[in-house]
Design a protein around this nucleic acid. Sequence first.
DNA 1: CGAATCATTCGGCGCTCACCGAAGTGTGAT
DNA 2: ATCACACTTCGGTGAGCGCCGAATGATTCG
Lengths: 253, 253
Amino acid sequence: MNRPEVDHESAAETPDLAALASLLADRTRAAICIALLDGGAWSAGELAEYAAVAPSTTTEHLNLLVAGGLLAEERQGRRRYVRLAGPDTAEALENLAGLAPYRQVPVRSLAEANHRRALHHARTCYDHIAGALGVAIAETMTERGLLVRDYGPALTRAGASWLGDLGIPDAGPSAAHRAHVRTCLDWTVRRQHLSGAVGAALCRHALDQKWITKAPTTRIITVTEIGRAAFRRHLGLAEDVLTPSLTLLPPRA
Amino acid sequence: MNRPEVDHESAAETPDLAALASLLADRTRAAICIALLDGGAWSAGELAEYAAVAPSTTTEHLNLLVAGGLLAEERQGRRRYVRLAGPDTAEALENLAGLAPYRQVPVRSLAEANHRRALHHARTCYDHIAGALGVAIAETMTERGLLVRDYGPALTRAGASWLGDLGIPDAGPSAAHRAHVRTCLDWTVRRQHLSGAVGAALCRHALDQKWITKAPTTRIITVTEIGRAAFRRHLGLAEDVLTPSLTLLPPRA
DNA sequence: CGAATCATTCGGCGCTCACCGAAGTGTGAT
DNA sequence: ATCACACTTCGGTGAGCGCCGAATGATTCG
């Protein structure tokens, strides 16, 4: 607080929304960002193959995304690993994706169809659970009075103690209502799933307890036998959201 | 739930993040969207002048933005009014703007400098209060234990009753902790201000009680004499955030 | 030390798109 | 009816940028 002048009379600062949006305005770069929503670090080569462009092209895209602050990079020998810059970035991307229009993409192989089906069923969304499973969790929690959404999502007192019973430490050190709950529009089903700190804690717990497993460089979640039992016992989830092949949630409910 | 097949084997749907981002990737369109963050409806001509492009260019931009679902339009006679499609859109834009890098823009006239200073001091951000005033409100509420942010923002019990004392009905019908609280990175100061349902309620109340006033087609908020007294009494806000000329909050605190 | 692998730089091609001005369409005022 | 005004359509221009392939640099492995 040393100088009374707010600014030199010649220039001022504005957030450059267009510059940021330009980074996402390209199909390939957008695909890269969405791939990185799995929360993991990918190498440049992996991303090149995933996005189906030449390595040189990938380099240029990664340069832009890193310079723009969307991605963080880490070099290990001749490898260049990138990941999303942070949870803020992931959340903004998710929000944006929820607003985005849909686009038809061709499905070439049976393998690709299976992959899509698995993604549709259960996947990670940065640090929480998405897909039909994630939506079912959020909706069942709401039905059971663990979660309310009237004016925005929050755990109820019952929800907080339910979390405690599972062995998930509640977010805040003192008050139960402090938990950071958010919902996030699921782009495969167009319904809300649970995100925020509580969503992340739940996902972490499920991984720790081996309810679910996830291979690296993919967002696909597999529900284990232990997990099926746990989700049935703790939430009464139906069989069809616990088994990939049976999953069928209608979009735009 | 009639057909077991999830999809035809030929095509699937993906959210087209790039298409949405393309809309914001243009300087002029981004400027239009940011202008509309005041929450009001602007005519095509007003936007053309604001963005300093030809009317024909504005038409094209508005067509794209409306078709993309970011803007809603309303025709009145020979006038075309547009506004943001809804609170979701506004929130996503705010989040994005918070992540965006800064850009130096020249300030041509004294009037423009004053305008910027006023925006810096207090303005609306869709439906809540932003600028130095908004940041001061959020920070003072936190200091006074009305708001906690450890794992994500939430009203405390004290905060809920404080709102009640002001005559602002709390969000949820039953439980106090249900209020929808969010914070939003302020792009002039790079600090958080209050948004979400509570932020909107507070802003509405302040307008109703004539604590603040706002002219149409501008985002600038003026604090009235009543408002200065109220903010002093209820929050103990210091003089410098209540008077535009004295406002000086360091960025990136 | 070579050979193989991963990433980067550079030049060049082609497409997209933001812009304007001029002419056209519809609405409101005289 | 006539004029003014707000917006729209259209054609043309120029700049920006996403893409690739070939050559180079950097790192690891045999």
